[in-house]
């Protein structure tokens, strides 16, 4: 069984980024609703019912925006009621709601993107761009943990030297700056040692070969191509203006022609690609198990 995060990072990144980017640049309520549903379904499937804090943020923030937008936005024409002599319009309320859904959907998509695209996968993607840069990036990631460990060591030795008073704010800040300063001296020297040892082992002399854990299988190519095809369809239709919605000064009635349906269905397929993949794999797994 090959879960979605075991697929080739390039295919996964393309699918997630295209789905999220279309959400960012579209204002069609149906498409945005679909996007939010698919993103939430994927999130629940991967994480179960935990992460209440994130749900509160991702759904609370848009709700706040939806409620606040009519208060500062005076563009609409159909006035519903007044608060403090400021008109609250139906258009501003709708605009706030749609923008709120968009915000929530984008938050869910990028949360999943952050979860799936761990730094090793990003390193793999960076290699296409520049091997040198990929090396710097991966060393910086490694340095993070190294420096944290070193920082704890420095802190402990400072404490052992008796340089801290009990619960004293100014002392804490000065101590923090001192620890950071010690860490910098150490890190720079350590970096130079690393560089010398790399040079001693022949780094920078000739072309280097490298190895990666991520392979291209037929599934990956199918995923990548279908994501590109579906997203291309949607983007062309958006650019042609078939999903354009105007909220101010009056809400336009939606025009739902054949192109609109094509775009929405294509987008639904694009957003559901991860779920379809996981569903298919689960089905195969279930059938294999029941054969035993």
């Amino acid at each position: 069984m090959r879960t979605y995060d075991a697929m080739n990072p390039l295919a996964v990144a393309v699918q997630l980024l295209l789905t999220a980017c279309i959400t960012v640049f579209c204002m069609d309520p149906v498409l945005l609703g679909l996007s939010l549903c698919a993103a939430m379904a994927l999130f629940f499937m991967r994480n179960g019912t935990g992460h209440k804090g994130f749900h509160a943020l991702a759904l609370g923030l848009p709700l706040l925006f939806m409620l606040l937008n009519p208060l500062w936005n005076q563009h609409g024409t159909s006035v519903l009621f007044f608060i403090n002599h400021r008109a609250v319009t139906k258009e501003a309320l709708w605009f706030g709601a749609v923008t709120g859904i968009r915000l929530a959907a984008v938050l869910y998509w990028f949360r999943t993107f952050s979860d799936l695209m761990t730094s090793d996968k990003l390193f793999y993607l960076l290699r296409f761009l520049s091997p040198k840069l990929a090396l710097i990036f991966s060393m910086a990631v490694r340095n993070l943990t190294l420096f944290r460990q070193q920082m704890h060591k420095i802190q402990n030795s400072q404490k052992a030297l008796g340089l801290y008073r009990e619960k004293h704010l100014i002392d804490d800040v000065r101590g923090g700056i001192r620890v950071f300063s010690v860490l910098i001296s150490w890190a720079l020297e350590n970096g130079i040692i690393t560089a010398s040892s790399m040079a001693a082992r022949g780094y920078g002399i000739g072309k280097r070969s490298s190895c990666t854990n991520f392979r291209w299988k037929r599934q990956d190519i199918v995923l990548l191509l279908s994501a590109l095809l579906l997203a291309g369809t949607v983007i062309v239709l958006i650019a042609k203006g078939y999903l354009e919605r105007q909220f101010y000064p009056v809400i336009q009635p939606p025009v739902h022609g054949a192109f609109w349906y094509t775009a929405v269905i294509a987008y639904a397929a694009l957003a559901l690609l991860p779920l379809l993949h996981e569903g298919k794999e689960a089905l195969i797994w279930y059938r294999l198990r029941s054969n035993i």
Partner: peptide, 9 residues
């Protein structure tokens, strides 16, 4: 290497 060190810092 110093760039990666400064980034991490």
């Amino acid at each position: 290497i110093l760039v990666s060190v400064m980034t991490a810092l």
